[in-house]
Amino acid sequence: MLPRKSPCHKKLVTESDGDRMADRLMCSELSQVGTVKEIEMNRHIEVPFLEASAASLRAGDCVYLTGILYTARDAAHKRMYEALERNESLPFDIRDGVIYYMGPSPARPGRVIGSAGPTTSSRMDKYAPILLDMGLKGMIGKGRRSQGVKDAVKRNGAVYFAAVGGAGALLSRSIVGAEVIAYEDLGTEAVRRLKVREFPVIVVADAEGNDLYDTAAQRYCREATVDCMNIGGAISQT
């Protein structure tokens, strides 16, 4: 088994070891970049979300998620969308839930999961607003979202998180359980129910309409030919 962090995350909140200090530094820096006044750092949140807790998160917040996530990426979203078009139900209860855009590599024997980092979220932009309107409260991925998704996040008091792309081995350590619950034939793209402990994410888009990617690059942009307000702009139009 992989080494695990303390199961008591309340204890971890008060710890002041090196890692936690670094995390605080990280978030305080982001708070200077963001447009939001009150940034709560290193929040530990239970998922599925309790009442209105998603809406209280702000762009730049560093959050540790503990509880249940559901994985779904391109093919699973297409199937869920088609199921809704046929007036069928979704394979899991999305109300107050969080979808992680992720397709893992296979688990070695004795392991819970393989490498498990985020995939690019914009490919799910077509499908996300309807799920948010049905009660989905959180999404984890990487990269920019369309205005349509951000509007749906805002009107539903939801949240879009980024996890560190390309850190799949590291992120797998925060996943303590995984089972396929739907669309098994899709292989890595099947819907999985993940049990996570202290899964590290950063709030990118929040219920006030803030988008961390809009502001983060500006602080370091020194190149006149690059429109720093529109980083990643061309691919997020859907």
């Binding site: 992989l2 820096e29 490498s115 980092g117 995939t119 799949g168 890595t188 370091y220």
Partner: peptide, 28 residues
Amino acid sequence: SVVGRQILEQLQENLNIAKQEMIPICQD
């Protein structure tokens, strides 16, 4: 950027975990 350094350090840690525990560096 402090955030940037933090991410780069996480990527280095990720490479070490991948090597030591034989977990692919990235799931893709």
